[in-house]
Design a binder for these strands. Structure first.
Lengths: 336, 336
DNA sequence: CTGTTAGCGCATTCAC
DNA sequence: GTGAATGCGCTAACAG
């Protein structure tokens, strides 16, 4: 069924080594021979067996990418950036979706490890990086994505989430909001914790408090749930502004406030989201959001990864950190 | 660096064959031996090399999925369904994003073929299925996703796009619209052509015409472009309803009509989208849309694929076709 | 420039 | 229940 180099060699009337040379070092072979071999490949429909290739060569040309939420446009943008950069370098990207679950994450890490990927790009679900450290010690390049590495064990590409949380709340405070709530969770997700920390510091600086409304995940549904709970409160006990840990939550909040309820945005409650996904601009009330350069994140991650692969383990691990930027729309300022 | 079964065998004091048995048929090995081998595996941090495994076994436990647009929530839902169903069966899913480009599609098909995937799930970018036919003839299971197979060469999982286009325009006609436009393209994408065909038949049945506003792709940006063109027209020459080939286009149209312009939706122009992605409900004006069971599509595709793999080539190829459903919201009926 | 050779790591016979 | 031998398809020396 499967055609092997041996059959190609037989048809072309050359040896098996020559076929391999045509495949991998065409310049080392006489042009006429190249032609003969290639037409044999074409007529036989030969396709290289990557398993054999990889087994023999020892190295792989695929990298793994594990994202926290495959359904979140932010991560599909990251993936797209990584994919494009990888394609330019002749690498393939395998994508895994951990869905914020450490179990699913482990499954994918194992899978990629068995596949002997050249490297791993990962947005870790939890704080336990020991498994990744082991991977890295065994020689697999690892780059943390959307998460700054604390120590020197990992290279990382991230956005300053503390700064992001800060500018969000600074904006709300500057526009006169005094009862601000932070919506997000679980706090085991570093991005959530950092954005909360930034929000808290800005709130303190402004001399106001910061209520926390925890969520089980960063989804539209969870946002809607919190929004409905808020709406059930007496008007006086509601916050006058909400900072959501991502845009999905913010969209859910809008749905509860406006479409299922009667809370005016931004008059009664202002909303600021995070990520600035493409749909933020198209929301019921266009969403003010903290923009992250998602595609650049993915692209840069591949850069760091290939650098690590090429230079070996002994290079200084790099930490690229982008600065987020506030995009103001009507959900926080009526006449934006 | 990499630990092999040989070293595990040495540490456990058994032979290499026994280690293999522990890995693949633990019941064939004495319990005490199993323990000894497993603790050796643990202390050495042994990880199976899937390339070697696959090379030897001849078969693979991964399937490829190629989607038309990785940034479209419809396809991320399809992917999610496929991923979940695959995980249940111990399969891994490699995802490729063709981005509606036949070149990118070919790159991924080649990649997956070299990887010797057990099967391929694909939403083809064009009409040339000959490459896939060859794949299938060589024994690789192929399932067309979101596209009904014309002939008997492929199994397929689809949604009746002609019916979908029909109910969209029937709804618009029934609510009194008479100058309806279809927005979408390129028509080389089958889904687009089918939805258009359905729309056309409904328009004819209602005794009205159907203007076609072609787009280069199914993106928010293209929708916005068409929307701005429409807005530049004299009021009398505008359609009073637009049926967009997918929700991304519809969202772009809304952005142009409402946020950058002054066309009232649905009063002046009604909009119906397609896919009913999660953001349709959260749009500026909640979007009427033709719902497709995206996750079920992915899940069902894996079912057909595994059936094909298990039963070989000679089974009757199945065609599962779902029926779409109209979800009416404010973008088409003011008081929905 | 081309042919020959020796494994990569593992799963699978078949003896024992 | 266990172990020694064989080869999956390919690449990378090296010899011619």
């Amino acid at each position: 069924m499967a055609v092997s180099v041996r059959e190609v060699a037989a048809l072309a009337g050359v040896s098996l080594g020559t076929v391999s040379n045509v495949l991998n070092r065409p310049d080392k072979v006489a042009p006429t021979t190249v032609d003969r071999v290639q037409s044999a490949i074409a007529t036989l429909g030969f396709v290289r067996n990557d398993s054999a290739r990889q087994l023999r060569a020892g190295r792989s040309s695929t990298v793994g990418l594990i994202v926290l939420d495959g359904g979140n446009p932010f991560f599909t943008d990251v993936a797209r950036g990584a994919e494009d950069a990888a394609m330019d370098k002749g690498l393939a990207v395998l994508i895994g979706n951990s869905d914020e679950s450490t179990d699913r994450e482990r499954t994918y890490v194992d899978l990629f490890e068995e596949r002997r990927v050249a490297g791993l790009l990962i947005s870790p679900a939890g704080d336990d990086l020991s498994r990744l450290a082991r991977l890295r010690d065994q020689g697999t390049a690892v780059v943390l994505v959307d998460r700054r590495a604390d120590d020197e064990h990992f290279a990382s590409v991230s956005v300053d989430d503390v700064a992001g949380g800060r500018i969000a709340v600074e904006h709300l405070a500057a526009t006169g909001r005094t009862r601000i709530a932070f919506v997000g969770g679980p706090s085991s997700i570093r991005q959530v914790a950092d954005r909360h920390a930034g929000a808290l510091s800005a709130a303190r600086a402004a001399g106001i408090g910061l209520e926390v409304l925890p969520t089980a995940s960063l989804s539209v549904l969870e946002g809607r749930r919190v929004g409905e709970a808020l709406q059930a409160r007496p008007r006086a006990e509601r916050p006058d502004a909400v900072f959501a840990a991502n845009d999905l939550l913010a969209v859910g909040l809008e749905q509860a406030f406006i479409m299922r309820g009667t809370i005016a945005v931004p008059e009664e409650i202002a909303i600021v989201g995070y990520d600035d996904i493409a749909f933020a601009e198209a929301a019921v009330v266009p969403l003010t959001s903290v923009r992250q350069p998602a595609q650049d994140l993915g692209r840069q991650a591949i850069e760091l990864l290939t650098k690590q692969v090429e230079l070996g383990q002994d290079i200084d691990l790099e930490h690229v950190e982008f600065t987020p930027e506030l995009v103001v729309r009507q959900s926080s300022v009526a006449d934006a």
